[in-house]
Amino acid sequence: MAPDSGSPDHADRSQWMRTLALADPDWLENRWATLPDRPDFVHVRAPETGLVMVRGRMSGTGDPFNLGEMTMTRCSVRLRGGAVGHGYVRGRSQRHAELAAVFDALMQDPARRDGVAAAVIGPARRRHEQRQRAIAEAAAATRVEFFTLPREHA
C-alpha cells in the first residue's frame, strides 16, 4: 500500500491511533454501539494477528537489540465513500483492531471528526490518563527516604 498522503497532520493521527490502541476493547465496543450514524465499511485488510519483534536499546540508550516478540492484530477498513482507516493493537483481539480502524477512518472525515473526538477519543484519553495517574500515585506512596547510619567506632 502506498503511504496515505494529504490526511490530517501525522502528529494528530498518531495521537488518536495511540489512544485507540490503548483503549479497552469492551469500552470501545460500547462507544461504537452508542455512536449515532454508524457508517458501513469494508475490510481493505481483514483483521490479522501476528507478532511484533519488540526491541530494546543496549544499556537503555545505545544500539538496538531484539528483546522478544509480542502479539499484535492489525486491520484496515474503508468507509463507504470515505477514508481508509488502520488499526494496530497489542494482543489478539480482532474486534479491537477493527474498531480502531473504523474510528481512525471516521477521524479523517472532517464532518465526523469533532463528534468522534468528543464521544470516543477524548474520553478514551482521559481514561488512560486516569490509569496512569493511579499508577503514579500508587508508586508515590512507596517513595522512601533512606538514612545512612553513622558507623560505630568500637
Binding site: 501476528g50 507478532l51 519483534m53 519488540v54 526491541r55 536499546r57 492489525r74
Partner: peptide
C-alpha cells in the same frame, strides 16, 4: 504466527 513488524527500540 507471522512476523508482522519490528518495533522501534523501547
Amino acid at each position: 504466527l507471522p512476523r508482522l513488524a519490528a518495533s522501534l527500540p523501547l
